[in-house]
Nucleic acid binder design. Structure first.
Lengths: 340, 340
DNA sequence: GGCATTTTCCAAAGCGCTTTGGCCGCCATC
DNA sequence: GATGGCGGCCAAAGCGCTTTGGAAAATGCC
């Protein structure tokens, strides 16, 4: 059943049917009702490709799924996508996932999506400090928004959480509890969020005149595994750290196990603050002990990013889109005063 | 830069340029070379919508992303998608994620994707025992493949792992170690995989004449959290179970903590076998103790499903596509003889 | 050299929708 | 009663590509 068929059975022209369905004013209300009713009855759906070709709008936004074996397909990203999807589904807009194998060689994938007009806009996640994709997409004139920020590449839309302040605050909190040997288990510093977190951490230490022990700062892919390994390693140092900041809940689980394995008790022998992106399947409140966290829902960020993308498509100037979200510090059981 | 422009600058007709780029034989090799070269130089990319409209093929396959707040956006699904993506990217085929809010009300989303011709085929995951989507898509004539199976709905393509046999084997292994009070922490039994797992478990017990204690079988969303709660609950029973089967690594982490919290030791006081879908961020081999698992890479399944979808689109009869994969039992440190 | 093929290219007709420009009839206005 | 404006509809021209049905040029065969 196509538009023309529907028009024929109604004794109307395709023009009128199209207008009726798309809510244009120049059609009699009764006629519109007849059309809508018939469309429903015959399960009519406009052919997406045809409509896209005619309007020039796609009704889809792009995201790239990194599938490289050695790269983390991480839960953070899905949770973010879920948020994006939540908002986009309201407007019946699809998400086009373009799978990419390459580690560094990802720009072709973006280029393909962009120049083939497969999407109206692109959402970029987890940008490195300097992002090649930003350059490419700007060059192609493809609208895009960043979840996170770059450094020294202004002029594009972004939404980010205040990672620097969050880790500054968390570090300060630990310092206030008397800790001075504080470790940092971070994601790769080439990513902006990780570099911001480190900056916050270092700034807080500096304010108290503490020089960070470089052996207490680790960066790695944010997996359970790496959390375990880094923490294990930190605990062999002497004196060992009495507190630790962790960049993701996934890593925190690993740290957790390492602390246990070393026969130490979390919240007593070792304090821990982890960043919580709020996963439905990992609840800081129900851990044992409960986990002190810097918290910001990555899903909520996704929803907002989707909203902003829609605004861009409606004409909002990307340069006006800069949102920096504050981060909560939620104090729970995994932190306590420095052991004497 | 569109096809016509490219043709004009080359002094050729659109027809010839199109054929040259699409590898049709009726074009001189030298001409083809000129065209390809020019296309590269001018960064020409055919407009996806136009091509789709003309050919009737979309070059995209659909998947639905469940974003409902109370539903698990689970890591299993992403890992599976990553596998799908790995294969599809080779053919430059996109994945269209259609976000769906609804819990039970998901069929409209599939219907929209299908009748709007937004994709060439659909990949369905985690089917319940009886799947409405199967009926709908069959009715619409939209090609689809299931990752998993349904019961009593034959005639469609599927790929599944042998869940029943896997849990049968795992249970048998625990029985051989002397355990008789064996618990099961499962996903919801309305899903085929969960029901198959339970069947395997019960069958193995029955073979030894053991009547399962119904208080030792729990089903829930497969989160860390629920793993903790169910295990905690099981451990209050008396006599408590000496061994446990767990349906996902995520739940296993929770069980793990519950065992610890109860002051018990895994692999000694309590044995545990978990099903491992092989996540890059959760390595059974690096847990403490290492985890005995039934193992099957969900990513590999995704890759194969993608391959099968491509075959369907090339004309292979869906009814001939039924693959049942065996599952490995990997014995590690979390299982041991029943404590005396 | 004449004929039938084969090679190489092209014009034009779609694919299914949206949108521009117009037409027709009806009412209000003077 | 003529004029203008407006509501309600339609014909036809695109959107950018693929594909059918030739046509012209090159080639093979005797």
């Amino acid at each position: 059943m196509k538009l023309k068929d529907l028009a024929d059975t109604l004794g109307l022209s395709p023009t009128t049917v199209s207008r009726a369905l798309n809510g244009y004013p120049e059609v009699n209300e009764e006629t519109r009702w007849r059309v809508v009713e018939a469309a429903r009855r015959y399960h009519y759906r406009p052919n997406a490709s045809a409509r896209r070709l005619a309007t020039g709008r796609v009704g889809a936004i792009g995201a790239v799924l990194h599938t490289h074996r050695n790269q983390l397909i991480d839960p953070h990203y899905v949770e973010f996508l879920a948020g994006v999807g939540e908002r986009l589904s309201e407007d019946e807009i699809d998400i086009v996932l373009s799978p990419t194998k390459a580690g560094g060689e990802e720009t072709p994938s973006y280029r393909r999506i962009a120049t083939g007009k497969r999407v109206d806009a692109i959402i970029l996640s987890s940008p490195p400090v300097e992002d090649e994709r930003v350059r490419v997409l700007t060059g192609l004139g493809m609208p895009f928004i960043l979840h996170g920020r770059t450094v020294n590449q202004p002029g594009h839309a972004w939404l980010d959480i205040d990672n620097e302040r969050a880790f500054h605050q968390a570090t300060k909190y630990l310092l206030d509890l008397g800790h001075t040997r504080i470790g940092l288990i971070n994601g790769f510093k080439s990513y902006t969020y990780a570099s911001h977190r480190e900056r916050g951490y270092r700034a807080a230490l500096a304010e108290r005149g503490i020089k960070p022990d470089e052996r207490l700062a680790g960066e790695a892919l944010m997996t359970d595994d790496n959390g375990y390994r880094l923490m294990e390693q930190f605990l062999t140092l002497s004196p060992r750290p009495t507190a630790i900041l962790v960049s993701s809940m996934m890593m925190a689980l690993g740290c957790f196990r390492a602390v246990r394995a070393a026969g130490l008790e979390l919240g007593k022998d070792v304090s821990m603050v982890a960043h919580d992106d709020v996963f439905p399947f990992l609840n800081a409140d129900r851990m044992y002990p409960t986990m002190t966290t810097t918290r910001s829902s990555i899903r909520a960020a996704g929803t907002r990013v989707a909203e902003l993308v829609l605004e861009m498509l409606r004409g909002r100037d990307p340069e006006t889109i800069h949102e920096l979200w504050p981060v909560d510090l939620v104090i729970r059981g995994s932190t306590g005063p420095v052991p004497s």
